[in-house]
Write a protein that binds this DNA or RNA. Structure first.
Lengths: 241, 241
DNA sequence: AGGACGTTTCGGTGGGGACCGTAACGTCCG
DNA sequence: CGGACGTTACGGTCCCCACCGAAACGTCCT
């Protein structure tokens, strides 16, 4: 029996290939990685970032928006784009994390080197915290019995109370899962993502526990942040450096 | 300041794009979807499945193996390939699930239609169970308090005892997470994956709770399986049809 | 040994798409 | 109103790569 793919299977393959093709271009991949900071960028900013002509960037953005990876907002003569949502961010993260170890190249200049080490110390990963900072928080939550990792990756009842006591609201009714393990590509270990990770990150930035540094995704912990994290989670300052 | 991507960032973009390019071809995507059944296929089988010349399939397999998506085993004149591991399977699943709703096309013939409905009823998803069967098991575990989904996606202590009592061994020391939510592209809901999902699937096949049907990933529940699932988890037979 | 079969290598062809420059279109602002 | 600026539409070029067939290479079996 000359058994080929049935048509629905073939159609699925075409869809999968088409979707992957949106990411399978260095310029578009650069856009997506930049947009992993969770903010909105203009077309021109992305063009300069990826070092291509504005017309080229415009075409790429058209494809990414049509393909559902990005959403756009027009404001005057500007075109702002951002990742279409947590689902898309997660896919890009997962792919980037899988590639991470192999695709890494050593920094050559001082600027590059310090940018890399700032990213490794702490950064945002779309809407949650990553890098050593993200790992330190995840570890602290775990050792204090607020987060369980042995049977999955879930907050405990004590963890729910902790978020409440700190004043970080969690939406337990959201369709989005409350916790999710996001693999860190600098630390090679999972850190807290999902609704709770996003809420924690938002609170950390609002309460000035950490602030964005530079133009990219890097963040650094403030002195107040060190105090708060030591008091609330027993995080040692050394783990944040 | 003419701020472009730093070299490490550029390199990450190239790596991400290169990896995505491995999936961004309809033939290779078809291979990967076929291999999501978790078994090893020969080069010729995949060539016929995707309806390309053997030489073409050979080239594609070379790229997928080099790129780390597949592993190969040579046996005599045969070249067996399989997905390189759960991590790769998860990435393909996630991408396919994200594309799923848009890329679907209606079946035209009776054969196609019955194949589709068999897949929707129950199938393997690399190493765990999916389709209505996977959902039914996940729901049953949840309503019986063996699996918690509200604060993440994790087995409870009662859940650990349940697996033990049924005689399904779980490796609590494995690097791989015990539970993970895998989004089902027919049901649009999460089902149990990860180490526990794989162990459950293996046991279900070993104990003949379900058997593979057809040449693809579809499985169907046996009468013994219906009895066992009703007794052990309170699953009603109607939920499996 | 010899034929059948699964697989691989190689050369050649064709198509898709990434890129740019130019020109046009809107918007903002003096 | 007119110039600066961000963005887009278009035409054209170039390169990459998916594909095939033919031939070669191993392996299995008789």
């Amino acid at each position: 029996m000359l058994e080929g793919m049935t048509r629905p299977t073939r159609s699925r393959a075409a869809g999968l290939a088409g979707f992957a093709a949106l990411i399978a271009d260095e310029t578009r991949a650069g856009f997506l990685l930049a947009l992993l900071d969770g903010r909105a960028w203009t077309a021109g900013e992305l063009a300069r970032h990826a070092q291509v002509a504005p017309s080229t960037a415009s075409e790429h953005l058209g494809r990414l928006v049509t393909g559902g990876l990005l959403t756009e907002e027009r404001q005057g003569r500007h075109r702002y784009v951002r990742l279409a949502g947590p689902r898309v961010a997660q896919i890009v993260e997962d792919l980037a994390a899988h590639v991470g170890p192999a695709g890494t190249e050593r920094p050559r200049t001082l600027r590059e080197s310090s940018a890399v080490s700032a990213m490794a110390r702490g950064r945002t990963c779309y809407d949650h915290l990553a890098g050593r900072l993200g790992i330190a928080l995840t570890d602290a939550l775990t050792t204090r019995g607020l987060l369980r990792q042995d049977t999955g990756f879930a907050l405990t009842d004590a963890g729910l109370r902790w978020f409440d006591s700190v004043g970080i609201g969690l939406d337990l009714t959201a369709r989005r899962p409350l916790t999710r393990a996001c693999l860190d590509w600098t630390e090679r270990r999972p850190h807290l993502a999902g609704g709770a990770g996003a809420a924690l990150c938002r609170h950390a930035l609002d309460a000035k526990w950490c602030v964005r540094v530079g133009t990219e995704r890097a963040v650094k912990v403030t002195p107040e942040g060190e105090r708060a994290l030591a008091e609330l989670l027993g995080v040692e300052a050394a783990a944040l450096r």
